[in-house]
């Protein structure tokens, strides 16, 4: 077991875009063991009124610091936003991205919206990956500089064309596959984007890993509530996003 419950001191917290909160906490145990794609299961309020933790991806780790970014969306994340001193975190959890620099030359990392955050640590560990980051519009563009520090090949796309490439990031990936050799694709983002990435990867025989999200209970694989449908079908068709995922091979899951 490399996960446990930790009380983590908040060392920085700021809103980097409307409702997007960037937090760094102190936790050597998580920082030293976390792998890209893993997540934190975070206590957002008192356990009587708010009995479920919220799963939030790890964005980055360095030395004894863990960084995660969340969107203020509902009751849980609005409460989490109010915590200034110490956050109760269960982690690191889940199946990380598979990194093998020998087998996977020419990697592409493609993320959309808040799905770009779990990809930063991955992009840092890969050898000069091609990175496509999609956002709805300019006001939502986040972490561009962080990704550019990780790789020289970063392109930002906005749906409304207000910044960077005008259109969906998936179009950039389509062009890339036409022009260059791509050995592996890593992706996280809204389901329609993941579906398009999966189809594109499979049509071109490219290995592809995607990170999924689901409403979650225990976070450690016991309660079977955060299931996703897999291609295996039959009695074993549901797998646990928290334990078997959140990162899956695209060919494993039905989106």
């Amino acid at each position: 077991m490399n996960h446990d419950v930790y009380k983590c001191k908040v060392i920085s917290k700021k809103e980097i875009a409307p409702n997007i909160v960037d937090v760094t906490v102190l936790c050597r145990e998580i920082a030293e063991t976390a792998q890209p794609g893993q997540f934190l299961h975070i206590k957002c309020g008192d356990e009587i009124s708010m009995p479920l933790r919220r799963p939030i991806s790890i964005c980055d780790t360095f030395e004894d610091k863990v960084r995660f970014i969340f969107e203020r969306k509902g009751r849980g994340t609005n409460h989490l936003n109010l915590i200034e001193d110490e956050i109760d975190i269960l982690g690191p959890l889940g199946n990380p991205f598979t990194i093998s620099n020998d087998a996977f030359c020419n990697p592409v990392v493609i993320g959309g919206g808040i799905g770009t955050y779990p990809l930063l640590k991955l992009a840092k560990l890969l050898e000069k990956p091609t990175v496509y980051l999609g956002f709805r519009s300019k006001s939502q563009v986040t972490l561009e500089e962080d990704f550019k520090a990780a790789s020289p090949n970063v392109t930002v796309a906005t749906d409304d064309g207000s910044y960077g490439y005008n259109g969906f990031a998936i179009e950039l990936l389509k062009d890339k596959i036409k022009q260059d050799k791509v050995d592996v694709i890593y992706s996280c983002g809204p389901t329609p984007m993941l579906r398009a990435v999966k189809e594109l990867a499979e049509a071109n025989n490219i290995r592809c890993q995607i990170s999924l999200e689901q409403r979650m209970g225990c976070g450690i694989g016991a309660c079977l509530t955060c299931s996703c449908e897999t291609t295996s079908g039959g009695t074993w068709k549901y797998k646990r996003v928290c334990k078997n995922g959140p990162v899956f091979w695209s060919t494993e899951v039905v989106l």
């Binding site: 479920l52 309660c223 079977l224 509530t225 549901y238």
Partner: peptide, 8 residues
Amino acid sequence: AGNPPPRI
């Protein structure tokens, strides 16, 4: 197999 998600 159980029920389809979301389950919680």
